[in-house]
Every structure is written in C-alpha cells, then in structure tokens.
Amino acid sequence: MAHLNQAPALEESVREFDLASTTVRELNRYLHKDLPAADAPRVVVTHPDGAHSIACGLDAPVDVEVHGHVGYYVAGMNKHARVTVHGNAGPGAAENMMSGFVRIRGYASTSAGASARGGCLVIEGDASLRCGISLKGADIVVGGSVGSFSAFMAQAGRMVICGDAGDALGDSLYEAVIYVRGEVKSLGADARFEPMSAEDRKVVAELLGIAGFKHDPAEFRRIASARQLYHWNADANQEY
C-alpha cells in the first residue's frame, strides 16, 4: 500500500503524532484530555507500526487518521469519533464502540467490532474470525469475506458481508441481522436464512451507501435467529 505512513500535507489546525518518536500514551492523553474546543478537530497519526490501543476510549467528535498498520483495539470503545486506518488492523478493532464511525481501509484481524453497541464499522478488506461477535447494536459492513464464528451470539445490530462467510455464521444469534452476498460455509446453531424483504434491501442499500461499496442489494441473503434457543427446553437435546 503506497499510502502507508504517508500523511497528506497538513493544515495548521491539524495535530500530527508520529509514533516513531512519541508514544501511544501521549497520543491518547491528547485525544482524551487536550483536544481543542474547535468543531471536529483533526489528528493524524503516522508510523503506528502495529501499536496497540491507538485512539481507544475517545469521547469527542474528533477525526483521527492513522497512516499504517495498527495492532489490537484501534478505536476501542469509541464514542463520537471518526477514525480511519489507512492500513490493516489487529484484533478487536472498534470493540465495544458506542457511536461514531471507524473505517479500516485494509484487512481486519479477529473480533473486529466485538460487542459494539453503536456507530458504524467499515472494513474494506476481509475480516478474520469472530467478526461482530456479541454485537450489541452497531452496524458492521465488510467489503470482503469474514472468518468463522462471525456474529457469534450477536444480540442486536446489522452486519453486511459483501464476500463469503466461514463456518458457524451467526451461532446463537439473538436479534442481530446478517446480510451476506457470497457463500456461507455453514450456519451456526439457531441461525437460519430468511427471505429478504423490501425493508431488508433498503437497509442493505443504506449501509452499502455509507460504506461506499457498489453492490446490488438484491444479491444479498438475510440470516437471523430462529429463536429456538431463547428458552430452556428439555427436548432441545442441549444443543446450547
């Protein structure tokens, strides 16, 4: 990726953190405590070199651009902020996000968007295992494919997968809904394909539009919970 670590020329109001010469702690301290009062301040981060916890715990409508690959938990527990990673992300990108917008231009490792409660996570490449695990209300749009156990126990929210899905997609789903365009290796316990309604196509079109992906919503299939595991049942053979 030619754009890695190369930040565009900066306006004066933009603050730059070069992680080759400063620490993640300094960056996060600034993002937590020292942001200017200006509307939507911008912060550019260069040379992340796989560092963990970049821009985690943000609580303000700041625009953060990271040029390079990041480690675990980029934008973890994000609120309000808009974080873009021009590179790949390690495990737990945007985990437990509450609101805001996180975009990974490359690939995402395991547990992307885990337990996220709000906001939107866009992954332009593939996402690994357990993408959207325990999802609690956020939207996730994946441009490529997702690994096995994605949307495991997902409780609420929407997940759009433009490529394929691995094994056990949507295992033990609650009320989250998955839309998938490609092949699904297998569905998890209690997940089932359901017909796409006009409303579903509208949702997919809206999320594809937000993510900037050009696919026909009619190519997607809907997966939701059969709700057979919602209650203890002596005849259920303990599949849960």
């Binding site: 715990g57 737990g92 985990e95």
Partner: peptide, 27 residues
C-alpha cells in the same frame, strides 16, 4: 446464557494487551 470466553481476546498474551487498552482508556 452468557458467553464464557471474552469476545476480543484469547489467552494470557492477549489479556496483557487488553489490560493495556483499559489502562489507556482510563489514563
């Protein structure tokens, strides 16, 4: 029925990174 494994980390090496994330969030 709650999960028995954390959704975003597996094993003690990951736990160290998770703890760091929480430390970062709480300054």
């Amino acid at each position: 029925r709650s999960a028995c494994r954390h959704p975003d980390w597996t094993g003690p090496d990951d736990l160290a990174i998770k703890i760091r994330e929480l430390r970062e969030i709480t300054d």
